[in-house]
């Protein structure tokens, strides 16, 4: 009987291992956001050199809307192919939805309050919220890389306040590359490996 019980426990343990996912399956979404904001940065740079208006940042907010639409498309495509829906995916989805609404709410509050809040201050708050999302996702998936990425976003939030303005494009590119595109590529690679 002892052997039989051991076998049963082995079956349970093996199946839990099979259904346990170590990688988030939103790699493409992270990569898309990273690339989208790089395009946004280039676009803003071109606008700055060609159009002389103080309300340039208004144009920037077109990109998050495009990103949101692309996220919904990517998610619905993923849902069709998904063989396993886990509680971890559901929790992480809810966290990022909350983060997204927080970012939108903060932006709306800043617009409505009509104070002249600098773009760089908003960016710092956004970096902190993205960091929170990354760190919680890292804990849910037990994936250390995401926790480090979260800390990296927080570091970025401080850096953009401290560094001179001509360093900002470099910091933004670093954040987008190492904070979104690289973890997205790693997540895709791990997902492929897990099958």
């Amino acid at each position: 009987m002892g052997n039989e019980i051991e076998k049963e426990l082995e079956i349970i343990q093996q199946m839990i291992q099979n259904t346990k996912k170590r990688a988030m399956d939103s790699g493409n979404i992270l990569i898309m956001w990273g690339l989208l904001f790089i395009v946004a940065m280039i676009f803003m740079q071109i606008l700055q050199n060609t159009i002389s208006t103080k309300r340039l940042t208004i144009y920037f907010w077109v990109f998050p809307v495009v990103g949101l639409i692309l996220t919904l498309i990517l998610k619905s495509k993923k849902r069709e192919k998904k063989k396993l829906k886990t509680y971890a995916d559901k929790i992480v989805g809810a966290i990022w939805l909350a983060c997204g609404f927080s970012l939108a709410t903060i932006k709306i509050v800043f617009i409505v309050s009509s104070h002249n809040i600098e773009f760089i201050f908003t960016a710092s708050i956004f970096f902190v919220i993205i960091g929170i999302g990354m760190i919680i996702s890292g804990y849910v998936y037990q994936w250390s890389i995401l926790k480090l990425v979260g800390l990296f976003w927080w570091l970025g939030a401080i850096l953009i306040q401290l560094l001179p303005q001509n360093y900002l494009p470099m910091v933004f590119l670093n954040q987008l590359g190492l904070g979104l595109i690289v973890p997205g590529l790693i997540a895709n690679h791990l997902n492929k490996k897990e099958g």
Binding site: K7, E8, I11, Q14, M15, K85, T86, Y87, D89
Partner: peptide, 20 residues
Amino acid sequence: RVRLSIMTALITSIEVDFSF
């Protein structure tokens, strides 16, 4: 063995596909 594995997979997930 089979049904115990199936039940374990289902209890640890929200939804599981036949092919999985």
